[in-house]
């Protein structure tokens, strides 16, 4: 049995066929699954069941999926994985900015959804990073206390902004971070629309920490949405 088994997942989608397929699948993988058809029902279930994770279709009739995210975020940090139809990048960004943790594009394969659910639950199980002053993934090692970055054993020299950007990624490994979130964390609250700054710095950071900046292993682009620091499989 996988370590995340037994977690309670609330699946919110107005399509009965999707609900059925996802429920059957997650159930077979050992999860405790509840479903809801509308946003109102989802909020009611959320209050009663306190699920460990929510899989949420954004495209619900009023109130919408975004309203659900807002409500859930007012009450805590329950991971939310958003389901959305492809080409709706703006919706995804809005959902992530509101505090959703990840998104899966419809149509999706069962494995993809399962993988995202496992990642989100893993974060939940892991203690907050503050205590741990050395971050490691693959060849990349960042000593947050001594501000030392090494890639494959050789030291990497980063400018202060590049270092801040890397730190922002390390604070939320494996999570999709929208351009706006990254800009505000690194450049400050007044920023948000200057995505080109961010693209330039991500490109520089990749040149320094990636083996092949054209095919990054760590700093992955989420097209139209933002970036994600991908953790290497251990």
């Amino acid at each position: 049995m996988s370590p995340s088994a037994g977690a309670r997942i609330l699946v919110v989608d107005d399509e009965p066929a999707i609900r059925r397929a996802v429920r059957t699948n997650l159930h077979a993988h050992g999860f405790d699954v509840e479903t809801a058809e509308t946003a109102a029902e989802a909020l009611e279930r959320f209050e009663h069941l306190r699920p460990d994770l929510i899989v949420l279709d954004l495209n619900l009739p009023e109130p919408t999926g975004l309203d659900v995210i807002r409500h859930v975020r007012e009450r805590g940090s329950t991971p939310i994985i958003v389901l959305s139809v492809r080409d709706a990048e703006r919706d995804k960004v809005a959902a992530l900015d509101l505090g959703a943790d990840d998104y899966v594009t419809k149509p999706f394969g069962a494995d993809e959804l399962l993988a995202r659910i496992r990642v989100a639950l893993r974060h939940l199980a892991r203690p907050p990073r503050g205590a741990d002053s050395v971050f490691r993934t693959g060849d990349l090692r960042v000593d947050l206390e001594r501000r030392e970055v090494t890639s494959g054993g050789r030291p990497v020299r980063l400018t202060p902004t590049e270092y801040e950007l890397l730190k922002a990624f390390i604070a939320h490994p494996d999570r999709v971070l929208t351009d706006r979130m990254l800009l505000q964390q690194v450049w400050g609250a007044d920023y948000g629309d200057e995505s080109h700054y961010l693209h330039v710095y991500v490109a520089r950071l990749r040149k320094k920490v990636e083996d092949d900046p054209q095919r990054p292993r760590y700093l992955i682009t989420e097209p139209g949405v933002g970036y994600r620091l991908l953790l290497a499989d251990e």
Binding site: I18, A28, R86, P107
Partner: peptide
């Protein structure tokens, strides 16, 4: 695109579930 993708999503979710090897259906 929404109308066409919605049934596609259900089909893909069901079909990919059937192909999963870590579960016995």
């Amino acid at each position: 695109s929404h109308d066409l993708r919605t049934p596609l999503a259900s089909i893909l979710a069901a079909a990919s579930s059937l192909r999963q090897r870590d579960v016995t259906w």
